[in-house]
Simulated scan of single mutants.
Amino acid sequence: MSNYILPPISSITSLDTQAKVQLLTHLFEKCETLTSYLVPELFNQNHTSYVNLIEAARSLLLKLLEGSDFQRINRIIAAHPRLGPQKQQLSSHSSSEQKSLAASSPEETEKLVSLNEEYEAVFPGLRYVVFVNGRSRASIMENMRKRIDRGDVGLERREAFEAMCDIALDRAKKLGAKL
């Protein structure tokens, strides 16, 4: 896990842009599209807690869904790593969060890889995003199957943004925020 500690919530409006981007990268994932959208909107007001900050980010992300900038939306969602075996380097946060998915049979690993591929074929440009922490591999794969079968891209984008914010709340707690 990262050694990063969140700055006091009272100080975040005075952080420089690089520090704001770093803060958001620890709460969410590294994503220039996300930070370029959130930094100007999120840090122009005082927040009473990290819960308040993340809920403001949730509102901004959900508001983005009201428009038609699907490329921007998809880039934000695709910044999250795939679940299971990785070709790309995971952030220290994602690596820790996905530990429950690591220990399994080769058949389960193959099934998760296959589900990721099927998900991305049904929802081009998206990644399956879910709050994994503490959930079993079987439960995650069952959820992924239901979402693939549902086939509703609008609902997928919404669920991804909701999950990203739920993950951010969990990360904030682990990074020393008083929630």
Rank of each mutant, 00 (worst) to 15 (best):
L112D: 05
R158D: 07
A103W: 15
N46T: 15
K63M: 11
I167L: 06
S95N: 09
S59Y: 05
Y119G: 08
R147M: 05
L42G: 00
K173W: 08
A168H: 00
E142F: 09
E110S: 11
Q18S: 11
L23Q: 02
S104L: 07
T33P: 09
E120T: 12
S36F: 02
E29I: 06
Q88N: 07
H93R: 11
K111I: 00
E156R: 01
P81T: 13
F131A: 14
R135C: 04
E97P: 02
G154K: 11
N46C: 13
S36K: 13
L62Y: 10
R157F: 09
A19H: 11
I140M: 03
E29Y: 05
E66L: 13
S100C: 09
N143S: 14
S11Q: 15
A19L: 09
K173P: 05
F43T: 04
R72W: 10
A172D: 03
E159D: 12
E117I: 12
Y50E: 04
L61S: 02
E142L: 10
T13D: 11
L23P: 05
K63L: 15
M1E: 10
M141F: 08
L15S: 05
V113A: 01
V122Q: 07
V130S: 01
S10G: 12
N3L: 13
A163K: 08
A102Q: 15
I140Q: 03
F28W: 10
Y128V: 08
N133I: 11
R147G: 02
L115N: 04
E97Q: 08
S100K: 02
E41L: 14
L115T: 01
I77E: 01
L64H: 12
F131C: 13
A121T: 15
P106T: 12
L60M: 06
K111E: 02
N52I: 04
P8L: 12
Q71K: 14
V51G: 01
P106E: 09
Y119T: 07
L38H: 00
R135L: 10
I76E: 02
F123H: 01
E117L: 09
I73P: 01
L175I: 05
V130D: 05
I5E: 11
Y128N: 04
R137N: 06
E156H: 03
A168I: 03
N46Q: 15
R150W: 07
H26P: 03
K99I: 12
I76W: 04
L126W: 06
R157D: 12
D166T: 09
T13W: 09
R82D: 12
L61Y: 02
I140Y: 03
E117G: 08
A56K: 00
S136A: 12
L24T: 01
G134T: 08
K173V: 11
E110T: 13
R171I: 03
H80M: 08
T33Q: 11
S139Y: 13
R127G: 07
S94V: 05
